[in-house]
Simulated scan of single mutants.
Amino acid sequence: MYIPKAFEVTNQDEIFAFVEENAFGQLISTVNGRLFSSHLPFLIAEDKSRILGHLAAQNPQHGELDGREVLVSIEGPHDYISPSWYRGPGVPTWNYQAVHFYGQCRVLRDAKQLQAIVNALTAKYEAGFDAPWQPEYSATMLGAIVGIEITISEIQCKYKLSQNRPAEDRAQVIKELQAGGAVKLAEAMARNER
């Protein structure tokens, strides 16, 4: 992705914390010579060297993934920024946060590996409920999915949060975003000010 220096994020702890908070993204590869994207929740391995997830076995994407380079694209809060919010001249733009992971993909079909991925995803997303649901999947149900494991080879991270504007403009953008309900993006901008 195109990343001007003002928007580049290289701190690995920051990047992985962002991905933990915003782990739903796109798995991008080719199917029959055309770009193909599946929207999935992802898990980062404990050692932060791999990304895990799963696809429906009927999804044609998994047929061309094994041993291939793929792109995982994750985005966070985003919104339109009006030039009317600036004290000086400006142009319409969009503020956002995004991470791209490139890596080699391996397709997983082993029931124990699939169970581990499904259990980890369930534990993560059920944790906020008062009575978390506990998964119990039959072999037939697990046979309806394939796991994916992507060994990360490159990480790109961009936070386009008005860093190229004066402090007064950034403060006004935060205020306007809050007023318009884009609270998460306003919070991300405020964190970035520190």
Rank of each mutant, 00 (worst) to 15 (best):
A45N: 07
A120I: 03
M141D: 12
P4V: 00
K158P: 09
I81M: 06
V31L: 13
A144W: 02
I150R: 11
V107D: 06
E154R: 14
P41F: 12
I145H: 01
Q58S: 10
S73T: 00
G67E: 02
K124T: 10
W94I: 09
T93F: 07
A6L: 03
Q12D: 08
L108M: 02
A57E: 13
F101C: 00
W85E: 00
V99Y: 09
Q104V: 08
V9E: 13
V72P: 04
T140Y: 11
I51M: 07
Q97M: 14
L27R: 03
D169Q: 00
Y137S: 15
I28C: 07
E46A: 00
L27W: 09
W94T: 04
E46Y: 04
I44M: 11
K5F: 06
V107L: 01
L52C: 03
H62F: 01
Y125N: 14
D47L: 05
I3F: 09
E193Q: 13
P89E: 10
E20A: 04
V19M: 06
G67I: 01
M189P: 15
A171W: 08
Q163F: 10
K158C: 15
Q58K: 12
Q115P: 11
E75H: 15
T122C: 00
Q156S: 12
A144Q: 06
E126D: 11
Y2L: 02
Q163K: 14
N32E: 10
W133G: 13
K160N: 03
E20K: 12
P132R: 10
Q104C: 04
A45F: 06
H78I: 02
E14I: 01
D66E: 15
D130N: 15
P92F: 03
P132V: 04
V91M: 02
G25L: 08
N59P: 09
S84T: 02
K184M: 10
P89V: 01
P92W: 07
H62T: 04
Q104G: 08
S73D: 12
E20P: 01
L65W: 06
L161C: 04
P77K: 10
A56R: 05
F7V: 01
A171G: 09
K124V: 07
M189K: 10
A182Y: 15
G53Q: 08
F24I: 05
T10Y: 13
G88L: 01
W133I: 06
M1W: 12
I150L: 09
S162N: 07
I3N: 12
T140H: 13
A144E: 08
H100T: 02
Q58T: 12
A171T: 05
R191S: 08
W133R: 15
Q12L: 10
L65Y: 09
L40G: 04
G103I: 00
H100M: 02
V183R: 15
S73Y: 03
I81V: 03
T122K: 01
